[in-house]
Design a protein around this nucleic acid. Structure first.
Length: 279
DNA sequence: AACGCACTCAACCGCGAATCT
DNA sequence: TAGATTCGCGGTTGAGTGCGT
């Protein structure tokens, strides 16, 4: 089956987005939603491919995005979820309100992975590296996925499972989990620690438990059903929650209201709860 | 001050899944 | 049902930046 490129490369702009482009895209989506990403750039007056627009929107422009480094609680949650789900970043991101799969993936590769290795934990299997060395059988059984390049393959095989199966696995202890229920806790030189649990029964923290067991609301993204906003310039002021986009120094009251509405109470509570929770 | 290295993260690429015709 | 089209995901890349020498 021949596959067409997502866009004809000629006349399609690439590279970093300008403030003007961001403004056009945000304005268009908030006004019209996105019925079809392929059509968005044309309708929004952008010389970008639809794919690029979708990425820019989901990873940067969405009003409900949080910014800044992941908190310790979020980081812990990512580790826990990764132990259950593998490299399925979108699934992990779905459990972290305001975070994108790209953001989590980057954070994993640049921070968490190193931290785990430093702590003597295999970031792929979430098992103690010492234990792996001590147990030849375990090492053999894991040998197919020890190389980082293989992890994606393993993940892809896992992803063949329907989501509900994954959830069942998670709540039942998880087919993806290491065979033994165990918890590895270690601290980095910096003092922060990450605990590795291989069984959901170890998720004593109500927040983590809830996040692992419950799906967050989906499909209700308000911008998809957004009623027309006649003048985009109306929302150009500052927000403490979402750092300023290039064209504005902040967020307007409208956008704050919008964020409250769009994010729903649960996500905001989640943030507060997770900040307060002790991992 | 200049250079090189390491790190971060936004953006791109290619593939498979889902949906449409 | 097959082929075409579109979307979404995960892996990778490269520009920008910070830091050490």
């Amino acid at each position: 089956m021949g596959r067409q490129p997502c866009c004809d490369k000629l006349g399609v702009k690439r590279g970093p987005w300008t403030a003007e482009e961001d403004k056009k895209l945000m304005s268009f989506i908030l006004t019209n939603g996105h019925c079809c990403w392929r059509a968005v750039p044309k309708l929004a007056g952008l010389l970008r491919c639809g794919k690029s627009c979708r990425l820019r929107w989901t990873n940067y422009l969405r009003p409900d995005l949080k910014r800044g480094l992941l908190t310790d609680a979020e980081e812990q949650l990512v580790v826990d979820l990764h132990a259950k789900l593998g490299n399925r970043w979108s699934k992990i991101a779905a459990k972290l309100p305001g975070r994108t799969d790209n953001e989590i993936k980057n954070h994993w590769n640049t921070h968490i992975k190193k931290k785990l290795i430093k702590m003597g934990i295999d970031p792929v299997t979430h098992e103690s590296l010492d234990r792996k060395q001590a147990s030849p059988t375990a090492a053999t059984s894991q040998s197919t996925v020890t190389a980082e390049s293989k992890s994606g393959e393993a993940t892809r095989q896992q992803s063949a499972q329907p989501d509900d199966v994954v959830r069942d696995d998670m709540s039942a202890g998880g087919a993806c989990s290491p065979p033994e229920s165990s918890t590895n806790t270690a601290s980095t030189a910096g003092g922060s620690s990450i605990s590795i649990s291989s069984s959901s029964s170890h998720y004593q923290d109500p927040l983590v438990k809830w996040l692992l067991e419950e799906d967050l609301p989906t499909g209700d993204d308000p911008w998809l059903n957004f009623t027309a906003v006649s003048d985009v310039d109306e929302f150009s002021s500052i927000s403490p929650a979402a750092p300023a986009l290039p064209w504005d120094v902040g967020m307007t009251d409208w956008l704050l209201d919008y964020q409250d509405f769009g994010m729903g109470d649960s996500s905001l509570q989640l943030v507060d709860a997770s900040n307060g929770s002790n991992f």
